[in-house]
Write a protein that binds this DNA or RNA. Structure first.
Length: 423
RNA sequence: GGAGGGAUGGCCGAGUGGCUUAAGGCGCAGGUUUGCUAAACCUGUUAACCAGAAAUGGUUACGGGGGUUCGAAUCCCCCUCCCUCCGCCA
């Protein structure tokens, strides 16, 4: 959420942010909810002040004395008033908080204007999409594909979008996870293996609840949520904590399976490995000093790009425009890898700076050396990387005439051989 | 899953209805003393929110939530977490 003081004192900034993100949010309703809450607060605090003063007086009066009894009668009336208005105050506070949660994070000045994904800016391009040749095929059309990636049995056992990975298919998944983790560790991210179920408080702090509840798998009767990304348990690691400034920046990476219901998806988006309900991903997280978060965003993007460069896959970096930025992000880059057979770009990473938006909601702070006070820090995250789509791109770009797939050199030590075959 | 014990400030730890933001100690900051260091002594040392240009004032907070009461760290109810023992288990 945004700083309530900012909303109150600079509503124009918030209004501009809403416009740049092309959202329709009723800022006036937020402002009036806030004003109503503050008016009630002052009223209740005045009454509490009366109670407190009376309490001090009554402590020294002899019990049963006329003065004591007079005070007591007087305070009974005040107590009734407090009780009544306190209920209203709580409701107003809740309403105010809920209203404020509807306000999006402010986009950074460097975020381009735009409404739709088409207006995202191509920030950079790497490698030659044409190198695989015009005869490249979609990965699901590669002869023997279903022997290594068994969607039918996955559907039988669990449901659509939960394939089995078999033999060299499974091995390639494991090689990619291993490669990502080792490269990320080399870049300074400490590996973490987090819980893959989180409670409602955690899902709320990172914004999955209450709005995106339908996107998560939920367990009964414990009401735990299967993580849609390792971002959720990782970000919550420091929830409601105060870090030492000298500990910043904290950089971590985690491999987890990710679970997404993907309600409403359809068509070629969901074919093959493009979009699964369960998939493997390595996520990168940073907790940084506010003054360095944009430098850290550049470094994060560069770290993730390094993975794609080493894999030798053609990719491009998009700078997201205001309309495609997302609710909580201040600035976001999407990394897309070229799928030569499908002749389309697949998003394999999203690198975002949330500034203090997540940190305020999750109450993650650092102790400022300068002021001695606890200040909100900035959080960033990015995938490094999503496995199935990278795998799909390898299959489509590296398919050789003999029907085998060349394994990128950087991956060979992890995979154990130079080619994957479907036979 | 069963039985019991616990949760107080940065830390340890008192406190069983009122003048308690909370004794005492440790730690930390400033000061005095002092060839230097150490010690000793003195003073200070929570956070959030609201109002205010500011100085400052006010309210809240003793794991979380609800209740009793004029008044709750203290009494009652529910929940969470931690510890010990038993059971089960990769």
């Amino acid at each position: 959420m945004l700083d309530p003081k900012l909303i109150r004192e600079s509503p124009d900034l918030v209004r501009a942010a809403i416009a740049k993100k092309h959202l329709s949010v009723d800022l006036e309703a937020v402002l009036s909810a806030d004003a109503a809450w503050r008016a009630l607060l002052q009223d209740v605090e005045r009454l509490r002040g009366l109670q407190k003063a009376a309490n001090t007086a009554m402590a020294t009066l002899p019990k049963g004395s006329p003065e004591f009894l007079a005070k007591l009668a007087e305070m009974k009336a005040v107590a009734a008033q407090v009780k009544e208005r306190d209920a209203g105050l709580k409701a107003a506070e809740e309403a105010c908080r809920e209203a404020m949660l509807t306000l999006p994070n402010l986009p950074h000045a460097s975020v381009p204007e735009g409404r739709t994904p088409e207006e995202n800016v191509v920030f950079s391009s790497h490698g030659d999409p044409a190198s695989a040749g015009p005869s490249a095929v979609a990965h699901w059309d590669i002869p023997g594909f279903s022997r290594l990636f068994d969607f039918e049995r996955g559907s039988k056992v669990t449901g659509a979008g939960f394939p089995f990975f078999i033999g060299e298919g499974a091995r390639l998944v494991r090689a990619l996870i291993n490669f990502f983790l080792e490269e990320d560790a080399r870049a300074g991210y400490v590996e973490v293996s987090p819980p893959i179920f989180v409670n409602a408080a955690s899902a709320t702090a990172t914004g999955q609840l209450p709005d995106k509840e339908g996107q998560m798998y939920e367990t009964t009767p414990d009401r735990l949520f299967a993580v849609p990304t390792a971002e959720v348990p990782l970000t919550n690691f420091f929830r409601e904590e105060i870090l030492e400034e000298s500990a910043l920046p904290v950089r971590r990476c985690a491999y987890t399976p990710c679970f997404r219901r993907e309600a409403g998806s359809y068509g070629k988006d969901v074919r093959g490995l493009n979009r699964l309900h369960q998939f493997d991903k390595v996520e990168l997280l940073k907790w940084v000093h506010p003054s360095s978060s944009y430098d850290e965003l550049d470094r994060l993007r560069d770290d993730v790009e390094g993975l794609l460069r080493k894999l030798g896959l053609p990719y491009r970096v998009l700078l997201m425009c205001g309309g495609d930025l997302g609710f909580a992000q201040s600035k976001k880059y999407d990394l897309e890898v070229w799928a030569a057979g499908q002749k389309r770009w697949l998003e394999v990473s999203s690198c975002s700076n949330f500034e203090a938006f997540q940190a305020r909601r999750a109450q993650i702070r650092y102790r400022s050396k300068e002021t001695g006070r606890a200040e909100l820090l900035h959080t960033l995250n990015g995938s490094g990387l999503a496995v199935p789509r990278v795998l799909a791109a390898i299959l489509e770009n590296n398919l050789e005439p003999d029907g085998r797939v060349r394994i990128p050199e950087a991956l060979v030590p992890h995979f154990g051989k130079s080619h994957l075959s479907f036979g």
